Structures are given as C-alpha cells and as structure tokens.
Simulated assay, not measured.
Amino acid sequence: MDNPEAQVERVIRALTVQSRQDQADALEEYFLPDAYFIHPFCRVPSFGDRKIPLINQTINSRWFIFFIYQWYRILSPDIKLTIDSASFDKKNDLLYCSIRQKFTLWFVPFSLWQANVRLVTVLELKRKPTDRNNRPILNGRPSPDIDDLSLSYQPNKLYFIKGQEDHYQVEDFLKFIAPWGASLLWFSWQLFATFICAAGVLLLRKPIVVLRERVLGLDSRAIKKE
C-alpha cells in the first residue's frame, strides 16, 4: 500500500466478504509472510517460513491467518461490514480502523443468531522495498527475477501489514458466544458498577479524607506542581 488510509477498505473487504481466491490474493499482496494475528478467539504468533519434510509443505504465520479468514467466511457466508473510519499513525506505523459488522451463522435458521458488533482493528505496518511485481524484498534480497537483479533497478517502497490486532468491547465480544441477552447482562453490570462508584464517593469520601489527613498525616489539598 502506498496510501494505507485510502486502500485499507479494499483489503478488509477482500478478506471478509469476497471469495476464497480474493482472500488468498489479498494476504499474498498486503501481508508479510511472518505477519501475526490477535483476536479474542484466536492468535497466530509471528514466524517465518518453515518447511515440513513429510508433506513437502512450506508454512508461515500468514499461512495460518488464511485459514482463520477461511473459517470466518465458512461460518458466516453473508457478512455485512462497514468501515466507518481509518486513521494512520505514520510516526508509529499503526493503522486504526473502526468497523461495524453483522455476523450470522449459516446453519441457524431464520437468522435467529446474529452478532451486530463494533470493533477497532489495529494494523501494524512495515515499509519495505519491493520488486517489479510490488512484492516485498525480504532480508535485503529481491525475488529471483532476472530483471530485478539489474543494478539500475531502484526498488519502490510500500507499506505491508506486519500484524493485525482486533479489539472488541466486552458487550460486543459476548454477542459472539451468547447472543441472547449476555450483552444486556454486561450492560446492566456496568450501570451497577457506576452506581457503586458514585455511592462509594458519597459515603466514604469524608472518612477517607479524615483518615488521610489526621491519621496518616497527608494533606489531600496538596497538589504536586509539575
């Protein structure tokens, strides 16, 4: 990506609402081979190419991320997804995306099970030089393309996804595992906790101030000047 804020929606849609081949192409084009993935339900640590001798298969962490997105589409073939905003922190190479999605299990009749959730996806980006096919040059070595080995070739630099981390509020997370009322129970608990905070201040503020000032000898009015 040369403009992450403008291009990230295309990447997210390819991974979540398009075909299996679109998913594979998006991962190959935009994710580094050792990309990591963190979600409340699953995690893929970062690791590079590893060859499995018995099956003659080379795997890496991106390989497992592909299976996660495949399973995501198998469970919910008809996902409704909206990207509300995207903001790129260029100093720290972090891209923040605010997303709303409707996740429906295909085997539940009449759409009785639905998770209407909000999340913030944080993408860690790395700017890498690329070959003529816009593939990242890893470890300072271009891909084995004769043209790219020419001394006159000046690699272009693009942003690639080093890692993805999905953040959900607890009430949204609960909609995935207990859609019928669990989020309402959590909402009620949050209101109760707020009431406890207010009651604690009203009932205990004066005794605590007295304890601090008279027993412990601390002046609560003293403010440290910075």
Rank of each mutant, 00 (worst) to 15 (best):
N134H: 02
I79E: 10
A178N: 09
F160S: 01
N116Q: 10
S87V: 14
I55W: 11
L105W: 00
I74M: 08
E124D: 13
R100K: 13
N133K: 03
L94H: 03
Y153I: 15
T121G: 13
I83N: 07
F67P: 06
L125T: 00
V170Y: 04
S111F: 08
L105V: 02
D93F: 06
F67L: 11
G140E: 01
N60D: 13
I55S: 15
Y159V: 04
F67A: 12
K162V: 05
N134I: 04
I99D: 01
W186I: 05
N133D: 03
I161R: 00
L105Y: 00
F107H: 06
F160W: 00
S87Q: 14
Y96I: 08
F173P: 07
T194R: 05
W180L: 11
Y159Q: 03
E124F: 10
V120Q: 11
I146G: 13
F192K: 04
I52A: 08
L125V: 00
L119P: 04
P155L: 13
F160D: 01
R127N: 09
W71H: 15
V120T: 14
A86L: 02
S188H: 05
V120E: 10
F66M: 13
K175R: 03
C97F: 02
N134L: 04
L158P: 05
V117G: 01
G140W: 00
I65L: 13
L94F: 03
P179G: 07
L125R: 00
L158V: 09
T82G: 14
L95V: 00
E171T: 05
S98P: 05
A182R: 09
Y69D: 15
K91E: 11
T121E: 13
G181P: 04
F103A: 04
D93S: 14
Q101C: 06
K162I: 05
Q57F: 10
Q101A: 07
L138N: 04
P142S: 11
F187M: 09
N56C: 06
S98W: 12
R50V: 12
I137K: 07
I52Q: 08
F192S: 06
L149M: 12
K51T: 13
L158M: 11
Y153C: 14
A182Y: 07
W186Y: 01
T104C: 08
T104E: 09
F64T: 15
L95S: 00
V122Y: 01
P129K: 07
C197I: 15
I137C: 12
